[in-house]
Amino acid sequence: MPLLKDGKLIEDPWTHIPDEVAVPASGPVIVGLKRWREERDSLCKRKDPVGVRLKSNHTAGDVADDLEHLGVVALAFPAFTDGRAYTNARRLRERYGYKGEIRAIGDALRDQYLFMQRCGFDALEVRENETEKNWQEATNAITVYYQPAADGGKTALQRRHPPAA
C-alpha cells in the first residue's frame, strides 16, 4: 500500500506485522499494542526501529510512556466517520510532545486530509490510485483556521491580534 508522507508518495519503509505473525529479525516493523506490551523488551533490543498500531478505542495515553522507543504511531480509522483518532493524534503531539511519525490507517476521505494534517498526522496509507496532487489540493482547500491545533498553524484569532513585537 502506498504511503503519503509529508505530501509525497513514497514506498513504505515499514512493515505491518499482524498479531499472529512472528516479528522478523530485521527491518522496521509496526506491531499491535498488545504485542508491544508483551514483547516490549525484545522489541526494544532490535536494531531496526519499531512502531505501534492503535485501534480507535485505544488512547494516546496507552503509549504515552513508550514514545521515546517508537518511530511510528499508526492510528486506525475503522470507518471514516470514526473521529477518535483525531483526538489521539492531538494528544500525542500536544500533550506528550511526540515527534515521530503519526500515520493514519484505514478508511479516509480525501476531504479529511486537512483535518488529519492539522491534528498532527504526517503520513497516511492510501489507495493505489491516490495522488500527491489530491493531497495538495485537499490540504490547501481551506486556508483559514479558527482553532489552534497540533500543526501550530496560525489561527484567525492570532492573525487578528498579533502578539506585540
Binding site: G83, Y86, R90, R118, C119, A156
Partner: peptide, 13 residues
C-alpha cells in the same frame, strides 16, 4: 460559532 466551524478534531463526532 467560530471555534466550532470546521473544527479539525471534532468534525466526526
Amino acid at each position: 460559532r467560530q471555534w466550532s466551524l470546521l473544527h479539525p478534531e471534532f468534525s466526526f463526532l
